[in-house]
Design a protein around this nucleic acid. Sequence first.
DNA 1: GTCCGATGTGGACGATGTTTAGATAGCACT
DNA 2: AGTGCTATCTAAACATCGTCCACATCGGAC
Lengths: 209, 209
Amino acid sequence: MRHSQTAEARPYHHGDLRRALIDAARRVLEAEGPSALSLRAVAREAGVSPAAPYHHFKDKGELMDAVAHEGWDLLDAALAAAKAAASSSQAAMNELGVAYVCFARQNPALYRVMYDTARDREDLPDKMRGDEEGAYCKVRDTLVEAGANPADTLDIELATTAAWCSAHGLAEMAGFTQFDHLKVACGGEIAFFRAIFQHMGLVPKHRAD
Amino acid sequence: MRHSQTAEARPYHHGDLRRALIDAARRVLEAEGPSALSLRAVAREAGVSPAAPYHHFKDKGELMDAVAHEGWDLLDAALAAAKAAASSSQAAMNELGVAYVCFARQNPALYRVMYDTARDREDLPDKMRGDEEGAYCKVRDTLVEAGANPADTLDIELATTAAWCSAHGLAEMAGFTQFDHLKVACGGEIAFFRAIFQHMGLVPKHRAD
DNA sequence: GTCCGATGTGGACGATGTTTAGATAGCACT
DNA sequence: AGTGCTATCTAAACATCGTCCACATCGGAC
């Protein structure tokens, strides 16, 4: 009630423990991997007692949600940058896909937390599916710019969903060693991604390349 | 002291505890979900002490591997059935995709264990990538039958990988509530899957004509 | 029948998520 | 100033988990 404009985050003793805990979680995630991401380890990393986080998060899941939320922000920014850098609207879809998979490969632990929490609640975060902004809408707009018929809204939604699923599937599989020889054959990991996207029907109708 | 469904008083030395533990794990998985799948819970379900499994599995991970292994067998069988039932080689690819996603939807916890263990070791199980049999080769063969050029081995491998990634991506996303309205619009979940696969480039593009 | 190794049990250890009671520190109001 | 109020943090405890230990027990080879 009192200070609603500064949001709920303004701890007294620590400065901003909520913020510190999320950062500590990110640090643990980077250093030790998802399996080491325990509430106690995060509290330890932040230098507080194991019970302290409970004044800022209902339970461990809520901390994970906060970490995942930051991940979605980062992913959204990466997609925005890729879209801005695309040379043509035809190329933009493939660039989005490559940027998506590269993000997952560069932040594997974070990406895993993002989808683990999403699947636990059977919901992608709202920010992804917003009609006005968010990654989902970026993909949809790019599809329209690439030539899809904006009047056929069902078709557009299906195409957007298909593209997202394809990219997510590749992102999850990209780490498997079975595909190492394909990466070599394609001349590098990113070239491999492009080759795979070539086989996925990301761009509507006409071939982009 | 009757535990779940063990027929009657079991001999103090179990007949085949390894088998019983895997079955118990499957039962726990179905009933309580992946988060409840603890070693102790499995031992409890099988009616043995928490230490008993260690005479059959090195650690919890090895039990999970065994459960996942059964999952891959089931998935392989589901794909084989779908391939056999396909009316034409053109339709077979889409049928394989639908069967894949349906398997994941009908065994969500098992599917999650399968990929969690695979990602932990950064390896899909060998049985999936065998050159002679296994799910990977089923998809590859189906692609060739559907018109892909078998001489271009790199292209075939890329197309197979792309199809697998697409199906896996859809399988993981299919549970999200965001897509409920699309399922309704398509006239059911399976119709939704078909519509999505329609947008994914599963069937090879006939570049030669 | 005796022995031995494979398979079971119970108890213990450290780590985890979570809750509780109590200590501490900043803010509001006299 | 002082007095509360409340948010924040600590310490201790609990149940559960994975894992290991010493020991009990069974089944088969001799």
